[in-house]
Each structure stands twice: as C-alpha cells, then as structure tokens.
Design a protein around this nucleic acid. Structure first.
Lengths: 352, 352
DNA sequence: CAATACTGCTACATCGATTGAGCTTTGATG
DNA sequence: CATCAAAGCTCAATCGATGTAGCAGTATTG
C-alpha cells in the first residue's frame, strides 16, 4: 500500500477521491487485483469471480472512478483525440464539432475540442496544450496556419489531419470549394437571367483572399461568369474578412446596389442580411443572393436563392479514415458540397 | 535517471516524446532542475540563471512540452473545468460553449466540453468521464437529470453548477423563463391586436412539459393570455419535444391554421419555418410567430415579430462567480432575457 | 508420493513531473 | 582559521494505475 496509508476512521470517502488503494484496503486485497477487476482484465489475470464481485460492489458503493491521469500516464495510449476549431456558434462549425464528438466516441476515443476564435496564436497555444494532454491525434479545423501546428505534432509523434483549410505538411480534407462556388454562382446567374435587363457581374462578399477556401470560391465565381462571357471587375470582389460587420460595411459603402450577391459564409451572411433589412422594401426585393455554407433559417429567407451545404458527415468520415490508416502523405481530399436551391413553393411565395 | 535510460544514438527525439529526463541528460543536470526551470518555480528553488538558460534552450530545441497527465497526477490541482452540453449546433448552445471556453481560459482553467445530444445516459457517462479526468469543477448545461450528476460530483468532492436547467442539489443559473415568455407573448398578442377579428388564443409549440424551462415558459404564455381575459385550450399547447420534425408534424396535424405561434426554441422553430414555407403564401402571411432563444437569421424572417435572447454573457458570469465563491446552497439564480422585437423597417418591408 | 500443472492472488517497478529534504561549494564573519 | 550562512544543486518519495514476474496453495498425473 503506497498512497494514502492513513487508516481513516469512519467511511473511507472523506474529502479525497477514492483510489484503488482505498478499495483494496476495504476489501482486504491488493491494489493490483482491484485494478484488474475494475479495468476488465481480471479474467485473464485469474482473479476469482467471488473476489471480483466483492471488489465491484465496494467500488460502486464508494463511487469510485478511475483517475485517468494516472491510467494514461502508465499506459502508452491516451485514447484522447483533439480538435482545434475556430468557432462553435455557426451551423457549419457547430455541426463539425458535434459530429466529430459523436464519431470519436463511437470509435472509442475521448474527444477534446478547443475553440480558438480564428486567432493564430491561440490556435498554436491550443495545439500545444492538447499535445500536453497526450492526445493521440489532432484534427486541425479552419486554422490560419496549419503547417506550424503540423510541425509541432510531427515533433511529438502525433498524427495530424487538417480539416476545412488545407496544409502542406499533413493530409487535408476540404470541401470542393471551386465546384461548389461554380454551381452556386450558376444558380444565381440563372435566376437573374429570368429578370430582363440585367447583365452586370455579381458581387462576391466575405472571406480573405489569402485563405485557400476563399480564393477557390472566387475562382469558381469568376469561372461561372467567364463561361457566360461576363467579366468581373475587381471592385465586385469584397473579400473583407469573415465578420458580419465587415460584410455590412462593405455593402453599405457601395455606390449603387448590386442585384446579385455571392456570400462567402453564413458569418458574412449575417451582415448581408442586416444590410438588406435596412433597405427600402422595393429595392430589397430586387437583390438575390446565394451563400456558401448552410443554415436552416438563412435558407428560407426571402432573397436567398440557394446555399452550398458542406457535407460534414462525409468530411469527418474521411478524417477518421485518414486517422486509422495513418497516411502521412499531405494529400488533399476534396468532398463535394450539396447544392441546396430554393424550393419552388418558397420561391413562389416568400420572395414575392 | 529513471525512465528511458537507453542512451539513444543520434538525436534524442526518435519516436517517443521528450521528457525532463531526456533534457536533464542532454544538459548534464538533474530532472529536478529541469522541472523547476520549465514550470517557473526555479527562482525560489535557487537555480542559477545560467543553468536555467541552458535548460530552456535545450527544451525549446527538442520541442519539449510537459506531460500534463504526469503533472496533474502529482499536483493536487488539475485546472481542468468541464462542461456538459446537449448540443453545439444552434446559436444558444454554440454561444454558451464558445463563451464558456473564453471565460475559462481567461481565468486560467483548461476547458473541456462534452456534447451529449440530450441523452440522459450519455449525460451521466460524460460526467463520469470528466470526473475521471480530474476536473476541478463541472458545469452541467441543459441536463435532463442534473441531480444525478450533482450526486456524482459531490461524492467525488467536485464543484458543480447547473446552467440553463435548474437542479435541487447544486446551485443553478437559468434565464428568467417566465418573464421572458410573458414579454414575448404580450408582444405577439399586441401585434395581433392590430389585425381585426382575431381573438383566439395563440399556440405554443415545442419543448417538453416535464422540463422546467418549458413549464415556466408555458406559465408566462398563459399569464399573458389571462391578463387579457383570454383562455388557452389544452389543444393549443403543443409541447411535442424539441426536434424540428416534431414541431412540424404537430402543426401539420392542426385542423385549422393558428394566427399566432409562440415557439419554444430555435430548434423547434426550424420545423415551424419549414411548415410555414409549405403553406400557400396568402395563408402564410397571416401567421406571425415569436420565439424563445435567438438566431440572427430567424430574427429577420418575414413572420417573426420577436425573439427572447438569453443573456449568455451574464449567465456565464454568474456561473464563474459561483465557482469562485463556492456557494453550495442549491439556490437558483435568474437572469433576465433580452427581448428583441422586430425593427420597424423590417416590419414594413419583409412581411408585406 | 514426487513431479507437474494450474488456480488465485500479491509484490514491485514503472509512467513523467513535482517537491521537501538534504548535500556540496563558495563567501562572509568573528 | 574555524563557523555559519547562503547559493546552487541533487536525491528520493510521491501521485494512482498497470502489468510482469513470481509466490503460495490445490489438483492432477505417473
């Protein structure tokens, strides 16, 4: 008997958590036996059913739960899988976090997610912290500088997968931003085609040109214009960052109103929608938009003609299979988006 | 030198993570000194600046990071603060998770959040798991059976606070659901008052009568009717659970259309909005609704006349102050909601 | 009845970091 | 030159769980 050798007077459970030593003491057996019984390896360690039952009973009665810090320290595996994510409070990242947890738990991992507000320094610190907690694997989502984190993980011998934004030093799983943006832009151009006298280029709002997703979406956006013989002036690309306020400000600064807007994310869309709501109704009704990402309410707003929903289950499926197979090839896996156009009934009603 | 006594040939960093023993070996000093230097206690342990510098340099070079499992095991404090939350993917819980993390980090804690899909068994298991990771404190959010978890925590000597749904065995911080629902219902009744020939009771959609929040909101809903001399028939309370599909189904089953709906959460609202979108436009325009909880897009939908936004920063402020002061009195702290009515410009435009 | 096999358990080293209790060495003081 | 203090370290126990090695007993076999 090593720790807590003080033979406490009444119930063993006063103040401190019960350990296998306490239980061993109560039952009158050894800590090894208690450990074996409580972690399920007791059959192959030839502990009798009788002793096992007594130990289980006492453990239950004393409300024992393993100290995983000690357990993980001793074993080689921690079973912890970490995720770094920029935000929780929008549908896309919320769904990623939620489904990641589910998937991890199903596969026997304990998921720990850290939210970093798109702050590069915090991203890096969070990754360090997760490594200190001995994660076996790290999923880095929407990081501004994934490669720096990949280096950290490689040094520690920890698997990394990038999700949503690609890196060059670890395998990445991302949406097919080009194709999604292309489809979405076509949808918007088609819709506008129904209205006579409009041939100007659409506007692109939100995101940063420095980030891979934004630049790919812009490429899709431009391509859809090109294939119809339209040119997009620089002034129509408002990659003002993701924040709602910035999108709002960019639109408010325009000299004349656009008739169609490609919104780069639901975060930016919040600004767009507020801006729209401030316009006089008759002007507002002329302005259609589409948005990359999906939100159930945004999808039913009057001026929304379509959204590109990223396929979160498929993205995560790929992440987990990469983790299992341990491909460290830094390849990029593209996953198609689901194009969600407006339902006919909505089109007829809501928008009119 | 205890662990890893094998003098590796080339770089120390081959396969395994570097430990203080590796660094001690490289520098030619003791693990104690390395530990002291790397955790900042070296000044009071009288380690020279010179040695400290050498150790730091080697640690950086070898990409060392503490093994927190070992560190936490040894110290009495883990600095981990846990949260159990039902979902991430709606604005309310997303905001809670995100701001909880921020607040925790600011206060020097390491936050670990677990999402339990409103499954009572998973809630309990998740709490057990967090206890196993030696959390110092647990915030239980929206749990179906918070008292069971409180018992568990008390047995382990861990502080608990209930958030969003109250319990009887630990202090709770919740929104003032009665007042919020009362205000919201008044808003909706006022709005309807402008339209001639409507005097029927509103409908209440979503949630479970067994849960505290729902029953308080129903109480507020009923009170607002009573104070205007209106009676609400049982058939107008559709507490069908939170899921969007259930709300949709309940409304679809109605014999004639309601003219005003009180929606119990944005999750239920998703179903309501889809149901609305399926109605012919002329019927749809007659139906106004309000919703407890807030969502930036939902707030701007044509038929939405107001939302009650729970004050997440204030809720969390109370949670953290409870944790600090350690009041184990099982009191319930009520926090007022922000009533967000529709802006005039929206009213005029979007809804018409 | 000795040799062997098997059952049922315990002892002890170990994981990596922390920390109270020393143990040298240097410097200052009487 | 002894004496004492302080500076600058190292030793070794410890946190709780795990698992290998091994020790008693009992049952089986020749």
């Amino acid at each position: 008997m090593k720790p807590g050798s003080d033979t406490s007077p009444g119930t063993a459970n006063s103040g401190k958590r019960t350990t296998i030593y306490d239980i061993a003491h109560s039952v009158g057996t050894s800590p090894s036996a208690v450990s074996a019984v409580l972690n399920g390896t007791w059959r192959k360690r030839r502990i009798s059913q009788k002793l096992a039952d007594r130990i289980s009973a006492v453990a239950l009665e004393q409300g024992y739960s393993v100290n995983l810090q000690a357990s993980v320290l001793r074993r080689d595996r921690s079973n912890i899988i970490g995720m770094v994510i920029p935000k929780y409070d929008n549908r896309y990242f919320g769904a990623i976090a939620e489904q990641f947890e589910q998937g991890a738990r199903q596969r026997g991992y304990f998921p720990v997610i850290t939210c970093t507000q798109r702050d590069p320094e915090l991203e890096f610190e969070a990754a360090r912290m997760l490594l200190s907690y001995q994660v076996e694997c790290l999923v880095v989502t929407g990081a501004t500088d994934p490669d720096r984190i990949s280096d950290l993980c490689h040094a520690a011998g920890v698997k990394v997968v990038n999700l949503d934004l690609p890196g060059t030093k670890a395998p990445s799983v991302i949406s097919d931003n080009f194709q999604g943006a292309l489809d979405l832009t076509r949808l918007l151009l088609d819709d506008r085609g129904n209205v006579a006298g409009r041939s100007e280029s659409l506007y692109f709002v939100g995101g940063r040109t420095s980030d891979h997703n934004t630049s790919e979406r812009i490429r899709g956006f431009l391509h859809a214009h090109t294939e119809r013989g339209l040119t997009v002036p620089q002034s129509h690309i408002l990659a003002c960052g993701y924040a709602a306020q910035k999108a709002h400000a960019s639109l408010a600064a325009l000299e004349h109103l656009p008739d169609g807007i490609f919104v780069n994310s639901t975060i930016s869309l919040e600004g767009v929608v507020i801006w729209l709501s401030e316009l006089p109704p008759e002007r507002r009704q002329q302005i259609q938009y589409c948005c990359f990402d999906w939100d159930p309410f945004a999808a039913l707003m009057p001026n929304c003609i379509g959204m590109a929903q990223q396929d979160v289950p498929a993205l995560l499926e790929h992440v987990f299979s990469l983790i299992k197979t341990d491909l460290s090839s830094a390849e990029i896996k593209h996953v198609a988006c689901n194009l969600r156009g407006r339902q006919p009934s909505q089109h007829a009603g809501y928008a009119s």
